[in-house]
């Protein structure tokens, strides 16, 4: 007969195991952490302005603070989803459609006129580009521009991030960002609307 003592030791053993499993699980899943930054401190915002561009205004380097924060605007689901809302609030769709392009170039195809780097996309939004891309410097704050840039980059991502948003609560016009649309559409070639547009601004 299994005596009561053995049952009891099993109970204790079990609670210890329970705690241990929880602990190891927490550590093991630590990489999933998604801190949400609702309020960017003004000094950090100011520092985010300080990215540097090469003379061709394509390549460049983000500010140090961007790395210190852990590159949040590309990988944090919250920032990506805010970027998605900014995309519709600031009327990006009027020229770029839902990413398929229009008066402005497409993002979905993964062909980037000014390269896929964050700095270049941020510069495009902040300062504008030739052929009627307006500057949003006076319309958005710099944090918003970074959020939007992160989202725009995810529209044309060749491999989707785990944190990429999926469909909107709206009519579906294209594959969602978490399906890596560029991987589907890249080979169809660039849908550039200004064939004369060279790399230099």
């Amino acid at each position: 007969m299994l005596p009561a003592v053995s049952n009891k030791s099993f109970g204790l053993f079990f609670s210890a195991g329970f705690l241990l499993a929880a602990l190891t699980g927490a550590i093991g899943l630590g990489w999933l952490r998604e801190p949400r930054q609702y309020r960017t401190d003004p000094p950090i915002s100011a520092a985010l302005e300080g990215f540097r561009l090469m003379p061709n205004a394509i390549g460049g380097a983000p500010p140090e603070v961007y790395f210190a924060l852990g590159k949040p605007y590309e990988g944090t689901a919250y920032d990506l989803s805010q970027g998605k809302r900014l995309y519709s609030w600031f009327g990006c769709a009027s020229c770029h459609g839902e990413g398929e392009g229009g008066a402005g170039p497409a993002f979905l195809d993964g062909w980037w006129l000014y390269g896929p780097s964050m700095v270049s996309i941020v510069a495009s939004i902040r300062d504008g580009r030739p052929h009627d891309m307006p500057a949003f410097r006076d319309k958005m704050t710099i944090d918003q521009i970074w959020q939007l840039a992160g989202y725009v980059k995810s529209i044309g991502a060749y491999s989707a991030k785990l944190t990429a948003p999926s469909r909107n609560d709206a009519p579906q016009t294209r594959p969602a960002e978490n399906r890596a649309p560029a991987a589907i559409l890249f080979n169809e070639g660039s849908a550039s609307v200004h064939p004369d547009q060279g790399p230099s601004p």
Binding site: Y38, S45, T141
Partner: peptide
């Protein structure tokens, strides 16, 4: 963002 954290109005410098 301090008065109503997370609302959609940004801090404009």
């Amino acid at each position: 963002q301090t008065l109503k954290p997370g609302n959609n109005m940004p801090i404009v410098p």
